[in-house]
């Protein structure tokens, strides 16, 4: 199974260092607006949620891109962006169902998470373990986890 970014909102402190690290690696500036990851704040429940590209299996951005600047890498599962090919029509920005595409007018390019070609800078900068880059659970693993919970609930001694 491919590696991916695992976000744990319960561990996030809201320091927003990931945003700065991302914008620095993507655009050579410390500007959270040019970052592919952004932290959403929920003070009422004391949670911070880092939001970034989910690397969809059937990405809308790839479907609407007319010049193939956005491509889904079948091996790694990452949706890659080629800024040399991009013509700046900004269709992907409106098409993303999760709003995780940003268009930087200054750079004339889309800011999108590509997991830094397998070396995510946001993960490196996160000191609290809210962002992790690791092997994702396969569907079978997920089933096993759920089945284990059932076992614990209904197994011997449980009832």
């Amino acid at each position: 199974m491919a590696k991916g970014l695992v976000v744990s909102p319960d561990k996030c402190t809201g320091c927003r260092t990931c945003e700065l690290a991302c914008s620095y690696s993507k655009s050579d500036t410390f500007n959270p607006k040019d970052s592919a990851i952004s932290v959403m704040f929920y003070e009422d429940v004391g949670l911070q949620v880092p939001m970034t590209c989910l690397q969809c299996d059937e990405p809308h951005c790839v479907k609407v891109c007319v010049v193939n600047a956005l491509t889904k890498d079948e091996k790694t599962g990452v949706v890659n962006y080629d800024k040399e090919k991009c013509i700046g029509c900004k269709m992907c920005v409106s098409a993303c169902p999760f709003g995780n595409m940003t268009y930087s007018i200054r750079l004339k390019e889309v800011i999108k998470c590509d997991l830094c070609k397998g070396d995510p800078q946001c993960v490196k900068s996160c000191n609290y373990g809210a962002l992790q880059y690791k092997e994702l659970d396969s569907t079978l693993d997920k089933r096993k986890i759920i089945a284990n919970q059932f076992k614990e609930a209904f197994g011997e001694g449980a009832i």
């Binding site: 929920y42 809308h60 920005v93 409106s94 098409a95 993303c96 709003g99 995780n100």
Partner: peptide, 24 residues
């Protein structure tokens, strides 16, 4: 027309808020 389905008229930052709300 590219996606072959109707989309709601929601801007990208609001879409992000909606999904992060679900996370929350």
């Amino acid at each position: 027309s590219k996606l072959g389905k109707k989309e709601e008229r929601i801007c990208d930052s609001c879409r992000k808020k909606i999904i992060s709300e679900k996370f929350k």
